[in-house]
């Protein structure tokens, strides 16, 4: 993580937030969005800017709405604060989520988990089902549908 951008306390909060925005799933074998923090080099500048703004706003909302620091909140309370953040700062929240999605769905582990087939740099390519030419029989038998001009 780019330590100079986030304090260790902020980083812990960020792990929490990302884990709530996209939690891990045993059913779908997907990690939580906090996985994107493991690959610091790939994080976009835009993410870091938005994350800083989101952290500030979420900490502020924790105090204002529950009179407590984020770190001392129960899980349900944290979800409530994030919902409040979404409601009060929708544009910032949406842009932050889009940035998270960009990083999450370009992460190699996530792409493997969701089975996107051949992952860049595309070593092998993909197999696609050929089609049964007989499917076109009726189209062909209907005859020409273009207008002749002579």
């Amino acid at each position: 993580m780019k330590e100079e951008r986030f304090s260790s306390e902020q980083l812990q909060i960020l792990y929490d937030i990302l884990g709530l925005i996209i939690p891990s799933s045993d059913e779908y074998l997907k990690p939580s969005a906090s996985i994107i923090l493991e690959d610091s080099a790939s994080l976009a500048e835009e993410f870091i800017l938005l994350a800083n703004s989101a952290l500030h706003k979420i900490q502020e909302l924790s105090i204002l709405s529950l009179n407590n620091d984020w770190g001392k909140l129960e899980n349900e309370e944290k979800i409530g604060v994030i919902n409040l953040f979404q409601k009060k700062e929708n544009r910032l929240f949406t842009n932050f989520c889009l940035c998270i999605i960009n990083a999450y769905y370009t992460n190699a582990l996530v792409l493997k988990a969701i089975n996107t087939k051949s992952i860049p740099p595309f070593p092998e390519g993909n197999q696609l089902k050929e089609f049964d030419y007989l499917m076109l029989e009726n189209v062909f038998l209907k005859g020409e549908i273009y207008r002749k001009t002579e």
Binding site: T94, L98, I101, Y104, Y105, T106, L111, I114, T116
Partner: peptide
């Protein structure tokens, strides 16, 4: 692809 699926789905 996955990014566009998720972003357009969110929006």
């Amino acid at each position: 692809g996955p990014v566009e699926t998720a972003t357009s789905g969110l929006l």
